[in-house]
Simulated scan of single mutants.
Amino acid sequence: MELEKNEVINNLLNKNLKIIQRPDFFNFSLDSLLVANFISLGRGVNKVVDLGTGNGAIPLFLSERTKAKITGIEIQEISANLARKNIELNNLSDRIEIINDDMKNWKKYFISGSQDAVISNPPFFKFHGNEELLNDLDQLTLARHEISITLEEIIETASALLKDKGYFAMVHRPDRFLEILDMMRKHKITPKKVRFCHSKIDKQAKILLVEGVKFGAEGLTVLPPLVSHDADGKYSKEVLDLFD
Protein backbone atom coordinates (compact mmCIF):
# COMPACT_ATOMS: atom_id res chain seq x y z
CA MET A 1 0.00 0.00 0.00
CA GLU A 2 1.38 3.38 -1.03
CA LEU A 3 1.23 6.15 1.57
CA GLU A 4 0.55 9.78 0.73
CA LYS A 5 2.60 12.70 2.01
CA ASN A 6 2.20 13.19 5.79
CA GLU A 7 0.73 9.70 6.28
CA VAL A 8 2.30 7.41 8.88
CA ILE A 9 1.43 3.88 10.03
CA ASN A 10 1.14 3.29 13.78
CA ASN A 11 0.26 0.27 15.86
CA LEU A 12 -3.24 0.68 17.25
CA LEU A 13 -2.35 0.37 20.93
CA ASN A 14 -1.43 -3.25 21.79
CA LYS A 15 -4.10 -4.73 19.57
CA ASN A 16 -3.40 -6.70 16.41
CA LEU A 17 -4.31 -3.66 14.37
CA LYS A 18 -2.50 -0.88 12.55
CA ILE A 19 -3.72 2.60 11.66
CA ILE A 20 -2.63 5.20 9.12
CA GLN A 21 -2.83 8.75 10.44
CA ARG A 22 -1.92 12.29 9.47
CA PRO A 23 -0.67 14.83 12.02
CA ASP A 24 -2.69 17.61 10.36
CA PHE A 25 -5.97 15.70 10.77
CA PHE A 26 -7.90 14.59 13.82
CA ASN A 27 -6.31 11.38 15.11
CA PHE A 28 -7.90 8.74 17.28
CA SER A 29 -7.83 9.28 21.03
CA LEU A 30 -8.64 7.35 24.19
CA ASP A 31 -12.24 8.58 23.74
CA SER A 32 -12.65 6.32 20.70
CA LEU A 33 -11.35 3.26 22.52
CA LEU A 34 -13.56 3.92 25.55
CA VAL A 35 -16.81 4.35 23.61
CA ALA A 36 -16.03 1.33 21.41
CA ASN A 37 -15.73 -0.77 24.55
CA PHE A 38 -18.76 0.83 26.23
CA ILE A 39 -21.46 0.12 23.65
CA SER A 40 -23.52 -3.06 24.09
CA LEU A 41 -22.77 -5.59 21.36
CA GLY A 42 -24.86 -8.63 22.17
CA ARG A 43 -25.78 -11.57 19.97
CA GLY A 44 -28.55 -9.62 18.24
CA VAL A 45 -26.25 -6.82 17.04
CA ASN A 46 -25.47 -7.53 13.39
CA LYS A 47 -25.40 -4.03 11.86
CA VAL A 48 -23.55 -1.06 13.38
CA VAL A 49 -23.09 2.50 12.11
CA ASP A 50 -20.36 4.88 13.32
CA LEU A 51 -21.40 8.50 12.77
CA GLY A 52 -18.39 10.71 12.04
CA THR A 53 -15.89 7.86 11.81
CA GLY A 54 -12.81 10.00 11.07
CA ASN A 55 -9.96 7.69 10.07
CA GLY A 56 -11.91 4.61 11.11
CA ALA A 57 -10.52 3.97 14.59
CA ILE A 58 -13.87 3.09 16.17
CA PRO A 59 -14.79 0.49 13.50
CA LEU A 60 -11.34 -1.04 13.94
CA PHE A 61 -11.82 -1.28 17.71
CA LEU A 62 -15.34 -2.66 17.26
CA SER A 63 -14.02 -5.36 14.92
CA GLU A 64 -12.21 -6.85 17.91
CA ARG A 65 -15.52 -7.22 19.78
CA THR A 66 -18.07 -8.20 17.13
CA LYS A 67 -18.51 -9.91 13.79
CA ALA A 68 -21.26 -7.42 12.88
CA LYS A 69 -21.28 -5.47 9.62
CA ILE A 70 -19.91 -2.01 10.49
CA THR A 71 -20.41 1.13 8.42
CA GLY A 72 -18.54 4.36 9.11
CA ILE A 73 -19.82 7.68 7.75
CA GLU A 74 -17.34 10.55 7.38
CA ILE A 75 -17.96 13.96 5.79
CA GLN A 76 -14.28 14.83 5.12
CA GLU A 77 -12.90 13.16 2.01
CA ILE A 78 -9.30 12.88 3.23
CA SER A 79 -10.38 11.29 6.52
CA ALA A 80 -12.74 8.91 4.72
CA ASN A 81 -9.96 7.85 2.37
CA LEU A 82 -7.67 7.27 5.35
CA ALA A 83 -10.40 5.15 6.94
CA ARG A 84 -10.70 3.07 3.77
CA LYS A 85 -6.94 2.54 3.74
CA ASN A 86 -7.06 1.49 7.38
CA ILE A 87 -9.79 -1.04 6.71
CA GLU A 88 -7.77 -2.47 3.82
CA LEU A 89 -4.54 -2.44 5.85
CA ASN A 90 -6.20 -4.60 8.51
CA ASN A 91 -7.90 -6.93 6.01
CA LEU A 92 -11.38 -5.95 7.21
CA SER A 93 -12.97 -4.88 3.92
CA ASP A 94 -15.47 -7.74 4.14
CA ARG A 95 -16.78 -6.46 7.49
CA ILE A 96 -16.34 -2.68 7.43
CA GLU A 97 -17.51 -0.14 4.86
CA ILE A 98 -16.72 3.59 4.79
CA ILE A 99 -19.10 6.15 3.29
CA ASN A 100 -17.80 9.63 2.42
CA ASP A 101 -20.85 11.85 2.89
CA ASP A 102 -22.70 14.06 5.34
CA MET A 103 -24.44 11.80 7.87
CA LYS A 104 -27.60 13.85 7.31
CA ASN A 105 -27.78 12.12 3.91
CA TRP A 106 -28.17 8.71 5.55
CA LYS A 107 -31.34 7.94 3.56
CA LYS A 108 -29.17 7.47 0.46
CA TYR A 109 -27.55 4.44 2.06
CA PHE A 110 -29.83 2.95 4.71
CA ILE A 111 -33.43 2.00 5.33
CA SER A 112 -35.01 3.69 8.34
CA GLY A 113 -34.90 1.48 11.42
CA SER A 114 -32.42 -0.96 9.88
CA GLN A 115 -29.48 -0.75 12.30
CA ASP A 116 -28.94 -2.65 15.54
CA ALA A 117 -26.50 -0.13 17.03
CA VAL A 118 -25.21 3.37 16.33
CA ILE A 119 -22.08 4.83 17.89
CA SER A 120 -20.43 8.26 17.72
CA ASN A 121 -17.48 10.29 18.96
CA PRO A 122 -18.90 13.61 17.72
CA PRO A 123 -17.70 17.23 17.79
CA PHE A 124 -17.87 18.33 21.44
CA PHE A 125 -18.12 22.10 21.15
CA LYS A 126 -20.98 24.35 20.13
CA PHE A 127 -20.17 27.01 17.56
CA HIS A 128 -21.44 30.46 18.45
CA GLY A 129 -19.98 32.33 15.50
CA ASN A 130 -16.69 33.41 17.13
CA GLU A 131 -14.16 32.24 14.55
CA GLU A 132 -11.24 33.28 16.77
CA LEU A 133 -12.03 30.27 18.97
CA LEU A 134 -11.66 27.86 16.07
CA ASN A 135 -8.60 25.90 15.05
CA ASP A 136 -6.83 27.31 12.00
CA LEU A 137 -7.11 23.98 10.20
CA ASP A 138 -10.60 23.58 8.77
CA GLN A 139 -10.45 19.80 9.05
CA LEU A 140 -9.76 19.96 12.80
CA THR A 141 -12.46 22.59 13.22
CA LEU A 142 -15.08 20.27 11.75
CA ALA A 143 -13.95 17.44 14.00
CA ARG A 144 -14.13 19.51 17.20
CA HIS A 145 -16.94 22.02 16.66
CA GLU A 146 -20.59 21.64 15.70
CA ILE A 147 -20.35 23.35 12.34
CA SER A 148 -21.47 20.69 9.87
CA ILE A 149 -23.83 19.01 12.36
CA THR A 150 -25.26 19.63 15.82
CA LEU A 151 -25.66 17.35 18.81
CA GLU A 152 -29.40 17.09 18.22
CA GLU A 153 -28.93 16.24 14.53
CA ILE A 154 -26.53 13.43 15.45
CA ILE A 155 -29.00 11.95 17.95
CA GLU A 156 -31.91 12.44 15.54
CA THR A 157 -29.94 10.61 12.83
CA ALA A 158 -29.05 7.80 15.23
CA SER A 159 -32.70 7.37 16.22
CA ALA A 160 -33.83 7.27 12.57
CA LEU A 161 -31.26 4.57 11.79
CA LEU A 162 -31.99 2.40 14.82
CA LYS A 163 -34.47 -0.43 14.98
CA ASP A 164 -36.73 -0.61 18.02
CA LYS A 165 -34.62 -1.66 21.05
CA GLY A 166 -31.45 -0.77 19.15
CA TYR A 167 -28.49 0.70 21.03
CA PHE A 168 -27.03 4.19 20.75
CA ALA A 169 -23.76 5.11 22.47
CA MET A 170 -21.64 8.23 22.40
CA VAL A 171 -18.76 9.90 24.16
CA HIS A 172 -19.13 13.57 25.04
CA ARG A 173 -18.43 16.29 27.61
CA PRO A 174 -20.02 16.22 31.08
CA ASP A 175 -21.11 19.86 30.82
CA ARG A 176 -23.56 18.81 28.10
CA PHE A 177 -24.95 15.80 29.96
CA LEU A 178 -28.42 17.20 30.61
CA GLU A 179 -28.68 18.41 27.01
CA ILE A 180 -27.71 14.94 25.79
CA LEU A 181 -30.39 13.30 27.95
CA ASP A 182 -33.00 15.80 26.75
CA MET A 183 -32.14 15.18 23.09
CA MET A 184 -32.11 11.41 23.51
CA ARG A 185 -35.55 11.44 25.11
CA LYS A 186 -36.88 13.85 22.49
CA HIS A 187 -35.84 11.39 19.77
CA LYS A 188 -37.21 8.26 21.49
CA ILE A 189 -33.90 6.94 22.84
CA THR A 190 -34.20 6.06 26.52
CA PRO A 191 -30.96 6.73 28.46
CA LYS A 192 -29.92 3.44 30.07
CA LYS A 193 -26.36 3.77 31.36
CA VAL A 194 -23.77 6.48 31.88
CA ARG A 195 -20.19 6.50 33.04
CA PHE A 196 -18.09 9.54 33.91
CA CYS A 197 -14.39 9.39 33.05
CA HIS A 198 -11.73 11.22 35.05
CA SER A 199 -8.08 11.76 34.15
CA LYS A 200 -7.20 11.30 37.84
CA ILE A 201 -9.27 10.28 40.83
CA ASP A 202 -9.18 13.75 42.40
CA LYS A 203 -10.07 15.60 39.17
CA GLN A 204 -13.45 16.50 37.71
CA ALA A 205 -14.79 14.25 34.97
CA LYS A 206 -13.43 15.17 31.53
CA ILE A 207 -15.71 13.03 29.40
CA LEU A 208 -18.79 10.90 29.77
CA LEU A 209 -19.97 7.73 28.09
CA VAL A 210 -23.71 7.36 27.62
CA GLU A 211 -25.84 4.63 26.09
CA GLY A 212 -29.54 4.50 25.35
CA VAL A 213 -32.06 2.13 23.81
CA LYS A 214 -34.63 3.20 21.24
CA PHE A 215 -38.07 2.82 22.86
CA GLY A 216 -36.32 1.24 25.83
CA ALA A 217 -37.79 0.77 29.30
CA GLU A 218 -37.12 3.45 31.90
CA GLY A 219 -34.19 3.05 34.27
CA LEU A 220 -30.79 4.75 34.15
CA THR A 221 -27.72 3.08 35.66
CA VAL A 222 -24.81 5.31 36.72
CA LEU A 223 -21.72 3.13 36.55
CA PRO A 224 -18.65 3.58 38.77
CA PRO A 225 -16.30 6.30 37.52
CA LEU A 226 -13.49 5.37 35.18
CA VAL A 227 -10.11 6.85 36.13
CA SER A 228 -7.72 6.85 33.19
CA HIS A 229 -4.45 7.67 34.96
CA ASP A 230 -2.82 6.76 38.27
CA ALA A 231 -1.30 9.32 40.61
CA ASP A 232 2.05 9.00 38.82
CA GLY A 233 0.47 9.90 35.47
CA LYS A 234 0.56 6.40 33.97
CA TYR A 235 -2.50 4.71 32.50
CA SER A 236 -4.65 2.96 35.09
CA LYS A 237 -4.98 -0.82 35.11
CA GLU A 238 -8.53 -0.61 33.74
CA VAL A 239 -7.40 1.43 30.74
CA LEU A 240 -4.35 -0.79 30.15
CA ASP A 241 -6.64 -3.82 30.13
CA LEU A 242 -8.57 -2.20 27.26
CA PHE A 243 -5.35 -1.92 25.24
CA ASP A 244 -4.83 -5.69 25.15
Rank of each mutant, 00 (worst) to 15 (best):
L137P: 00
D138I: 05
F125H: 06
L137G: 09
A117K: 01
G129Y: 00
L134W: 06
F127Y: 15
H145L: 05
S120H: 05
P123L: 13
A117H: 01
F127I: 03
E146C: 14
F124W: 13
R144G: 04
Q139Y: 15
Q139D: 14
A143P: 01
L137H: 11
H128L: 11
I119A: 06
N130I: 02
A117D: 02
F127T: 02
L133D: 09
D138V: 07
E132Y: 02
E131F: 05
F125G: 03
G129Q: 01
A117I: 00
N135E: 09
R144I: 14
A117F: 00
E146P: 08
E132T: 09
L133Q: 09
R144D: 00
N135V: 07
T141A: 07
F124R: 11
L134D: 01
H145D: 06
L134M: 03
E131V: 09
N135G: 12
G129S: 00
F125D: 00
S120L: 10
L137F: 10
V118S: 09
F127N: 02
A143R: 04
H145S: 07
V118K: 11
E131Y: 09
D138P: 07
N130P: 00
F125S: 03
N135R: 13
Q139G: 11
H128P: 10
E131P: 11
L140Q: 08
P123N: 15
K126L: 14
A143V: 04
E131D: 03
A143M: 05
R144Y: 10
D138N: 11
D136K: 15
E146D: 10
D136Q: 07
H145R: 08
E132I: 02
A117Y: 02
D136W: 02
L137N: 10
N130D: 08
E131T: 10
P123K: 14
F127C: 05
Q139V: 15
F127H: 07
F124C: 11
H128D: 14
P123T: 15
Q139F: 13
P123A: 15
L140D: 06
E132R: 06
P122G: 10
D138L: 06
G129M: 00
L140H: 12
A143N: 03
L142N: 08
I119D: 06
V118D: 07
P122M: 03
H128A: 10
E131R: 07
A117V: 00
N135L: 10
N121R: 11
D138T: 08
E132G: 04
T141V: 05
L137K: 12
I119C: 02
V118A: 12
L133Y: 12
N130S: 03
D136N: 13
K126Y: 12
H128C: 08
P122E: 08
N130V: 01
L137C: 06
E132L: 03
P122Q: 09
L142Y: 02
A117N: 01
T141D: 06
I119S: 04
F127V: 04
G129P: 05
D136S: 12
L137E: 09
K126R: 15
N121V: 09
P122C: 07
